Amino acid sequence: MAPRRGGGGGYSSGSSSDSCPYGFTDSYSQTLIAFYALYCVVFLVLFFVTGRRARKVKIAGLAKCLTYMSLTFAFVHIILQIVFTTMAQCGHITNDDYIPGIVASSWMISFMKYFLLVLILASICQRLNNKSPPIKIVTTIVLALLGVLLIADLSLYTRDVVGEINGDYPAQYKYFVHRIRIGTAYAVIEMIAMILAAGLILSAMSRAAHLRAKPVFISLVALVLSALGLGAIDLAANLNNSYFRTRYTTASQYDSYLAQLFFSYFFYSSALLSAVYVWSSDQLDGARFSVPPPPHPPHYPGDMRGV
Rank of each mutant, 00 (worst) to 15 (best):
residue 68 Y to F: 10
residue 134 P to D: 09
residue 88 A to K: 03
residue 61 G to I: 07
residue 135 I to R: 12
residue 144 A to E: 04
residue 140 T to G: 15
residue 128 L to C: 04
residue 152 A to V: 11
residue 72 T to A: 07
residue 104 A to S: 14
residue 77 H to V: 07
residue 58 K to F: 10
residue 106 S to F: 06
residue 135 I to E: 05
residue 88 A to T: 05
residue 140 T to P: 06
residue 115 F to S: 07
residue 145 L to C: 14
residue 82 I to V: 11
residue 57 V to D: 09
residue 148 V to N: 12
residue 79 I to M: 14
residue 80 L to Q: 08
residue 145 L to V: 15
residue 70 S to P: 04
residue 132 S to W: 07
residue 61 G to F: 06
residue 105 S to N: 12
residue 151 I to E: 00
residue 138 V to G: 03
residue 147 G to I: 00
residue 97 D to C: 11
residue 89 Q to H: 10
residue 130 N to I: 04
residue 76 V to D: 07
residue 137 I to A: 15
residue 137 I to R: 15
residue 109 I to D: 04
residue 138 V to C: 09
residue 79 I to T: 12
residue 150 L to P: 01
residue 110 S to F: 03
residue 96 D to L: 04
residue 105 S to E: 10
residue 81 Q to E: 15
residue 118 V to P: 03
residue 106 S to P: 06
residue 150 L to F: 02
residue 106 S to E: 12
residue 77 H to E: 12
residue 103 V to R: 00
residue 99 I to N: 05
residue 127 R to E: 10
residue 128 L to P: 01
residue 110 S to W: 06
residue 153 D to R: 11
residue 98 Y to V: 05
residue 88 A to W: 03
residue 138 V to M: 12
residue 121 L to E: 10
residue 120 I to L: 14
residue 74 A to V: 02
residue 66 L to F: 10
residue 143 L to H: 11
residue 79 I to E: 07
residue 90 C to Q: 05
residue 59 I to C: 14
residue 83 V to R: 03
residue 126 Q to Y: 01
residue 61 G to E: 11
residue 117 L to D: 06
residue 62 L to A: 11
residue 142 V to K: 08
residue 59 I to K: 15
residue 107 W to F: 15
residue 149 L to P: 01
residue 78 I to S: 00
residue 120 I to S: 00
residue 145 L to D: 09
residue 148 V to F: 13
residue 101 G to Y: 01
residue 102 I to N: 00
